[in-house]
């Protein structure tokens, strides 16, 4: 075991690159009234930060805006963060 530990092996962890949500300038907000739950936003999210029930994980969402751009119902809006 002690020998094994010397090998340079990385272990999978959530948040291996820190909380990337701090990169965000604009935050996506889903308007549930307009949303028809097609799931395209979750499908196209490069980081899989949108869950199956379309809840956005703001700890990790980088604010790229693909979800807002691809939403056929225009139910996702990008709001500027006040930091």
């Amino acid at each position: 075991m002690s020998q094994r530990r010397r090998l340079a092996i990385s272990r999978p962890v959530t948040g291996a690159c820190g909380k990337t949500g701090s990169w965000r300038v604009f935050s996506p907000l889903i308007d549930r009234e307009k949303c028809n739950a097609c799931g395209l936003c979750a499908m196209y999210c490069p980081e899989a930060a949108i869950s199956e029930d379309l809840a956005i994980d703001y700890d990790f969402c980088k604010g790229c805006g693909i979800c807002a751009n691809e939403c056929p119902k225009k139910a996702v809006s990008m709001e500027r963060e006040d930091k």
Partner: peptide, 23 residues
Amino acid sequence: PREEYILKCTSACAGCGGTLSLR
């Protein structure tokens, strides 16, 4: 499948096409 093999979150640029493909 729902299962993701990339844990949140990589340090790829926002809007990376390569990460989306890898998913």
